[in-house]
Structures are given as C-alpha cells and as structure tokens.
Design a protein around this nucleic acid. Structure first.
Lengths: 313, 313
DNA sequence: CTGTTAGCGCGTTCAC
DNA sequence: GTGAACGCGCTAACAG
C-alpha cells in the first residue's frame, strides 16, 4: 500500500478505496500508532484547522464564558481554538492578532480594544465582535445602544431621575454604544446626562470599584446607575456597601452582560443579557461559513429583571 | 540574496549575516509584506511553537485567571496557546487531550477531572496541575491538604466547633486533597468530621448554592464551613442570605483559591490563596524546560484573611 | 476502478 | 553568501 492510499483512507477521499485495503490501512495505523502530522497537513492544505480568538482578558467572566462557548463549538466542528489574551493592551492585541494570522488560523475572532486598529489580516477571515464595524470586515454586534436604552428606561420607570453611568473605557468592546444608549434614553426622558454623571473604568471589579467610589462620593444625589458590565457592577456594589448606600433602596442598579456574576451578587443584578450561544454561533459561521458575510450583523438583547433595580423589594 | 539568508535574518541565526545584507533583507520583507509561514516552520522544526491547555471550564474565574497567566507567558516566550475546555466531562477531556497531542503541541498542561485517566501522550511533554501525580508524569500541585488544614485550623481558632465541608466532586482538581485536609484538621482538634458534615458539588456558583442549601437546611447547627473553591463559596453566601443565616456571625466561612471573586463578594472571603503566577511559571518551565522534570512539585499556599471568617467584625 | 509514483508547499540548514 | 536536500502529508497524473 502506498502513502496515497493512506491519505485517501484518513480523509475518506478524495478518491475511494477498496474496503479490504481500507481495513489493512486501518490495522496498520493502529499497529504502528500512526497519527497524521498536523503541521504537514496545515502546510499542504494552507489551513490549520484552528481558529483564533483574541480577548482583552479571559479571566473576566464574560470573556471567559464566550471563550467557553467558542471552544465548545470549535471542538465539535473539528477545529482547535488558539487563545490570545491581549491583556487590555492595544499593542499586545495587535501582536496577538498578527501572531494568529501567521499561524494560518482558518478564522479569527477578535474583541478589539481599538475600534480603529488596522492589522494586515492577509486574507484571514476575521470577525470583530461587539465593536463598530470596519470597512470591508465582518462584524457581529449585539444591540449595545438599544440594550443600554432599555436599561435606562427601566430605571426611569422606577421613578429614578438622577441616573448615572459607569461605563467602559472609550474603544472597549461595546463601551461607546452603551454610553450613547444611556445618553439617548435620558434625553428622551428629558433628564440630565451631564458629563459629571458619567465615569469610566476598564471592565474589571477593581475598575468599577474605584470609579464608583469616585462617582458616589462626588454626586451623592445620584439615585440610580447604569453600569456597562457585570464585573464593574460588582465593584460598584462593594463601593456602595462601603459608603453605606443600600441597593436598590438608595441606589437602583442595572448592568450589562448578564453573566453568572449577575445572578450571584448581593443583590442579584438586573442586567441586559447577552445571548452568548447565539453570538458564538454567529461568529463561528461568519468566520468559517462561506461566503464570509461582510458587513454588520446585529443581535438583540433582553433585560433580565433581578433585585438590583428595585422591582422585587 | 537567497532563501537561506532570509532565514538567518529572521531567526538571527544560526549563522551570521553581514549588516548590509541583513538590512536589504529587512527592507525587502517590509516591501513585500513577507511573513514566515508558521506551518512550514513547525513542519521543519518538528515543533509547533504552541502549548496546549485543558481546563474543566474557562468561564470559572480560577481557570480563567490561570489561562490568562499562561497565555501571557506563552506569548512572551513566542508560543501560542491552544485552549481546550473539557466542559467538566472526562470523555471530552480525553478527546481534547488527544486532539492537542495530534496537533503536535510542544507541551501540554492539563487540569484533569480524572486522576486515573491514561491517554497516549506519545512523547508530548505534559504536566498535570493540581492533581495527584501519575507514574512517570510531571505534576505540579499546590499544597491542597495543607491549605485546607490551615483554613480549618483558622476556623477552630475562632472557636467554631461544627465545621462543615463544601467540597468539589471526587477527582476534580484538588478536591480530594482538600477534603482530606479538612478531615485531618478536625481530627487533630478532636472535632467531628462525619460524612453528613460534608457535601460535594462541581466547581460552580450553582453547584455551591445547591449543596449549601442542602447542607444548611439539614444541619442547622453547623457554625462554620470550609469551601473548596471561591465560586462555590459565592453560591454558599447566596444560600445563607436566602436562609437568613448571617456570615460570619452565624456561619464563618473560609474558601479556597483567592481569586477576584473572593475580594468582591459580600462579605469578602477569607481564602487560601493560590499563587497563580508561580503555578504558571512552574507549569511552563516543566513543560518547555529541559529536561522535563518528572515527578511531583509542590507549591505552598497562604491564607488571606478577609471578612467571612469573622476576624474583623 | 484500484493502487502507485512523483512533485508540491515553505522554511531550515549544511556542504561548497 | 548560495544551492540543494529535507521534513511530511496531499493529490494530480499515470499504470495495471
């Protein structure tokens, strides 16, 4: 038997092999413990059977949950998942993306810190998640502005009037659109959205904590906050406890993401929930499917009511 | 200039190149946008410049934080990180490990659900983290039993006498040794460690919540709990709130991991802290360094005091 | 229709 | 500084 036949057996194609021969090959493979060399295969086929994922911080519950969804689906589809943590550093992000492109990943999914970043993708199908769309590049975004508006409108419905915003850093995934949604909803309700009602921090517990302390000690009359992520909200809850502010009585809170963090905090967080499964599906098929859908695809979000908004006191 | 020279320039070796030539090569690379093909390189060098990581669940803060540390170090060392989420499923874990071995990763780090699992590693340097050692296999473990003992002794020092255990599932990373540490510390203190004082759940908020409800409603006289992970402790805190049990007054709690989850919970969790940076370093050098150190390497842990144990009421 | 031969892809490295 | 062999699997072209 020749190497060609082995190849046909291993790949079930592109040409048929007689059953008897096929079995002989299979036996020989088992006996010798032969496994095809993935590197040689990647070289010949010009594809690595792997996809790349770049996130700002995997230890963040939201990014972790997304990575989990993607890892699961990629594995099922026979792909490996190359993970790059950009460490919240745009420079590192570029480096990670380039490295993944060099590794010939078949697709690249990136949650970018820099809306404007231009890295040479050299033909690698890439999808940006939760980010402004880029010219000629596929991008899947959830309805960040709409979700934020819904959240703020809910707070308005509770009779809150001084609704602050604890947002992500400019350029961070979804941050700008969520800020815009907050502003728009306040405008529609005829409420103030001055710059001093808004603070920014990175998507972390520590960031949320520091920003919330700043906000709450500066503007004691704030009666509600829309927070751009669950992890930041966790920081805010802690700040509130430290300052003797009770949530939701003194301060109603609605956050964004709806991860497990929101369910188990005290109080549990009313949050705009991201449909992770749907996002992961869309991202993978955008990147692996053909033809790669260009342009922007928007996914709807839902507000999930828990205790932090004051609905169920 | 020949392809050989380009190679010498790209790799700064193994042979010297005249500065002028070197510059010409660099210019040409920039002009043509040339990037070496990682697959071809992997084929020639017989190494993928990538390491594999298999965890039970990346969305778990602890595993996520570990993945982050590893991703960071791997990148700095020029390696890619192939992530496999085993979804808390031993079957899936085996499949992930095999897939990574096939991909020729240069090293494999696995947080295994099955202490006894035997997958053919075919020479891939592998290190098991936080797990019983296996014959002939490198393994890095933190001092699970010792950490658990320290935690329990601390609770004993607070005058607690009915100290329960909310542990991980048998076989889960560190679970068995932490359970043993709990039992040993109680025995030394002459306290009861009956089976009805111990419940198990997977490492998740939901698991911890369900198990804690079970435990706390069944044994109302319990006055302290040693929890095997931060995420489970988060579930326990919620159960305690639901049942009107106040922590730490009615119930002192010490958990294990010391992730960001422990810092921002209410109350913040006194926890046995895992030195992630050190663990990541040890794992990487065990897997990449030479010769791959066989046998078991143990890393010490520290108890970090916060509010849940009652030290700072 | 089944099995074999030969060349390709792309860096690396060594003898010249 | 250069030419060429090499690593390993894939597949088109060829032979039986």
């Amino acid at each position: 038997m020749s190497t060609a036949v082995v190849s046909y057996v291993v790949n079930s194609g592109p040409r048929p092999v007689a059953p008897a021969t096929r079995q002989r090959v299979l036996d020989a493979m088992a006996a010798l413990g032969y496994r095809p060399n993935a590197a040689a295969r990647a070289l010949r086929l010009r594809r690595a059977t792997a996809i790349g994922l770049v996130v700002p911080d995997v230890s963040n519950t939201y990014f972790g949950a997304l990575a989990r969804e993607l890892s699961d689906r990629a594995f099922t589809a026979g792909y490996g998942l190359l993970l790059g943590d950009s460490n919240n550093d745009p420079e590192r992000e570029r480096a990670q993306v380039e490295s993944l492109v060099d590794r010939q990943v078949d697709g690249l999914i990136v949650l970018s810190l820099e809306p404007g970043s231009t890295v040479e993708l050299r033909g690698t199908p890439t999808v940006y998640l939760d980010q402004r769309s880029r010219p000629g590049q596929a991008s899947i975004v959830i309805d960040n502005a709409g979700g934020a508006r819904t959240a703020v409108e809910h707070l308005v419905g509770h009779g809150r009037r001084r609704i602050a915003h604890l947002g992500g850093l400019a350029g961070a995934p979804g941050a700008d659109d969520r800020a815009r949604g907050w502003r728009e909803a306040l405008a529609r309700a005829g409420l103030e959205s001055g710059a001093d009602l808004s603070v920014q921090a990175d998507y972390s517990r520590e960031g949320g904590h520091a920003a919330a302390r700043d906000l709450l000690s500066r503007r004691p009359r704030v009666d509600a906050v829309f927070v751009a992520s669950d992890v930041q909200a966790l920081g805010l809850l802690r700040a509130a406890r430290e300052l003797g502010i009770s949530v939701p009585q003194d301060l109603a809170v609605v956050s964004f993401d709806g991860t497990a963090d929101a369910v188990f905090s005290d109080p549990p967080l009313t949050a705009v929930e991201q449909p992770l499964a749907r996002i992961a599906d869309a991202a993978l098929s955008a990147v692996l499917g053909q033809p790669p859908p260009r342009g922007r695809q928007q996914i709807a979000v839902d507000l999930v009511i828990r205790r932090s908004c004051g609905c169920t006191e």
